[in-house]
Design a protein around this nucleic acid. Structure first.
Length: 562
RNA sequence: AGCCUGAUGAUGUAAUGGUAACAUAACAGUCUUUGAAGCUGUGUUUGUAGGUUCAAAUCCUGCUCGGGCUACCA
């Protein structure tokens, strides 16, 4: 062990379980986890946490991780989702063990397991209506009551179940139920449905089946068949665990263990597939990969890197306590990564023209600019400079508040990578609006060879008005106006809380080099924020998605003053 | 109401009976040709009441509060 790095990272509770199992030899020191998405939507940042957990555990304990699609409900599942999910897992930097697995691979095994249960007198075919089944279940405080179908013989049930498979009954006419305990304090043990009839085309098995297993039945068996040692899922499956264990024990299958942890919640967004689907269907966002979405594909398009997401997942930790993570933590990790890797460029978003009267008209100078002060290998580029430039409107203030140190009347400011200029004169229109600033430049103040001796505190970005590239910007803001979507009253819709300013499209004035920006490339627009070239933008006309703004302590100061 | 489950600063996570740590956020300062980044510093006595112990965030008991469970979804 490295002496300087003797920091012992404490184990999370799942790692403790695994290490304990390794000590007792429960699974012969083998670790095999799985990530089991249902292909009925796109993966989101919460899934990313689960992916990092499962694949991370596989890696850490020299084991492996399966990718298994939980495709037991053909009515909601699509092959498009299967593809996007695989793509997202790989993009995050993980590789599953062997072939992709599907619960549907095990439909035949699952059928046999159901027969075994029937033979043991532990499952029966029930022709009651869904309503009746619900009623017979009782309530949490009232025991349920069984019905006559509970008493059907095993032989009869076996034949009935076969008829279900053969399609001799209509959809919904009957179901196969596990026979456990109608009086159990755990509602999920009151004879749960394990097979239903559903004539729907399955994306993999086509029309081979008209009966499909329920999650509660398919999942434990799939885990056991694959020899999954630790089956990690979210808290809401906790009450399902007794059934998981009951099933594997009755079937005599591998002792996979279900472990639950708290799902991730993030402020100012929604994380349920149902709600995300609604956003897409109601066109409140443009697509599943809209950069405002908390989907992995949306975040990728927004400019998030896999590393930032992985770092975030680690920092968030694993526990059984329900939590609400502040997006600022996510933003911290993307800033941290982008700060190191992104090329600095200049772009003026809200321009005001500055004419430098003592700089020769028609002259153009090329000034060297480092691409990334954090990366000495990033090299330099050349910026063109002339007597007319654009600066940010907010970088000039005629009546500066206390502490303001950008351009003011008769004040000085440094143009990044260029000269110091002095504001000489203001040109206004008939309504008194500022339309142009006349300035002078300090000749011997060029960046890198400044002999002026002037101490100028303010440094601003700018763009040559005679040589620029117009760029389109998608300026994103948080999706919701409310921090916690769970706080929305029940009689209101979360869609009423969508931030009307979550997307603003802006045309900005960028430096010439931006014409060559490639899709997916990351930039820091100096003093503004990090941007990523949208994958849908045309080659010659890059569209820049705002990933995250740079921190702005001056803006904070201004807020305090007002 | 019955069952399950959780409670540590603003937000997360750690401390596994030995005197509360780390990250983010906030605030203050420093540095700075990005008011960015960096660097330094500041705040928690662990939901509550009691008990065990030389010693409790950790163990025990009661209470309070939060979340989940009554889909032919996963």
């Amino acid at each position: 062990m490295n002496i300087e790095n003797n920091e012992v990272k404490s184990l999370n509770f799942i790692e403790e379980i695994i290490e304990h199992d390794n000590e007792t030899g429960k699974h012969n020191k083998r670790v095999l986890t799985r990530f089991p998405p249902e292909p009925n939507g796109f993966l989101h940042i919460g899934h990313a946490k689960s992916i990092c957990l499962n694949f991370g555990l596989g890696k850490k304990y020299s084991g492996a991780t399966n990718l298994r699609f939980d495709d037991t409900n053909p009515t909601t599942e699509k092959v498009d989702y299967v593809n996007s999910i695989q793509n997202d897992v790989r993009w995050l930097g993980f590789e599953w063990d062997g072939e992709v697995k599907y619960a549907s691979d095990y439909f035949e095994n699952l059928y046999t397991c159901a027969q075994t249960l029937i033979k043991k007198g532990l499952a029966y075919v029930d022709f009651s209506s869904p309503d009746d089944i619900a009623k017979q279940k009782g309530t949490p405080t009232q025991a349920g009551t069984g019905n006559a179908y509970r008493e059907t013989s095993a032989e009869e049930n076996l034949s009935l179940f076969e008829k279900m498979r053969k399609g001799e009954f209509k959809d919904g006419e009957c179901v196969l139920r596990a026979k456990i305990d109608m009086a159990s304090p755990n509602m999920l043990l009151r004879d749960p449905v394990i097979y239903r009839i559903k004539r729907a085309h399955h994306h993999r098995t086509g029309d081979n089946w008209c009966i499909y297993p329920m999650y509660d039945f398919a999942h434990p068996i799939s885990d056991a068949l694959e020899g999954i040692t630790h089956s990690i899922c979210t808290l809401e499956f906790e009450p399902h665990r007794p059934f998981y264990e009951w099933l594997l024990a009755e079937l005599g299958l591998y002792n996979s263990q279900q472990i639950e942890f708290a799902r991730l919640n993030l402020t100012y967004t929604v994380m349920s597939k149902r709600k995300m689907l609604k956003l897409v269907e109601k066109q409140l966002v443009n697509s599943w990969d809209d950069p405002r979405m908390p989907t992995i594909s949306g975040m990728r398009r927004r400019g998030y890197t896999a590393k930032a997401i992985r770092d975030f997942a680690v920092a968030v930790g694993i526990s059984k306590r329900e939590s609400m993570l502040d997006v600022s933590l996510l933003e911290h990790f993307i800033r941290e990564d982008l700060n190191k890797i992104s090329k600095r460029v200049m772009a003026v978003i809200d321009p005001i023209k500055v004419v430098i009267s003592n700089y020769e008209t028609g002259k153009t100078e090329l000034l060297p600019a480092e691409n990334n002060p954090e990366d000495s290998n990033a090299g330099h580029r050349e910026l063109s400079f002339s007597n007319t430039i654009f600066i940010e409107r907010e970088d000039f203030n005629e009546n500066p508040p206390k502490g303001y140190f950008k351009l003011t009347p008769n004040g000085y400011v440094r143009l990044k990578h260029a000269y110091i200029i002095k504001c000489e004169e203001l040109i206004k229109d008939e309504n008194g609006n500022l339309v142009e600033i006349r300035a002078s430049y300090v000749e011997n103040s060029k960046s890198g060879s400044d002999t002026s001796g002037l101490k100028v505190k303010g440094v601003i970005h700018w763009v040559d008005a005679n040589n620029y590239h117009p760029v389109q910007i998608n300026w994103y803001d948080r999706l919701l106006t409310i921090e916690n979507a769970a706080d929305i009253p029940e009689d209101e819709e979360f869609t009423d809380y969508i931030n009307p300013n979550s997307l603003k499209t802006i045309t900005a004035w960028g430096e010439k080099s931006l014409a060559d920006a490639k899709a997916g490339e990351h930039f820091q627009f100096m003093r503004k924020g990090y941007f990523c070239v949208d994958t849908e933008s045309a080659a010659a006309a890059p569209i820049f998605n705002l990933t995250v703004e740079l921190k702005d302590s001056w803006a904070k100061e201004l807020k305090k003053q007002s």
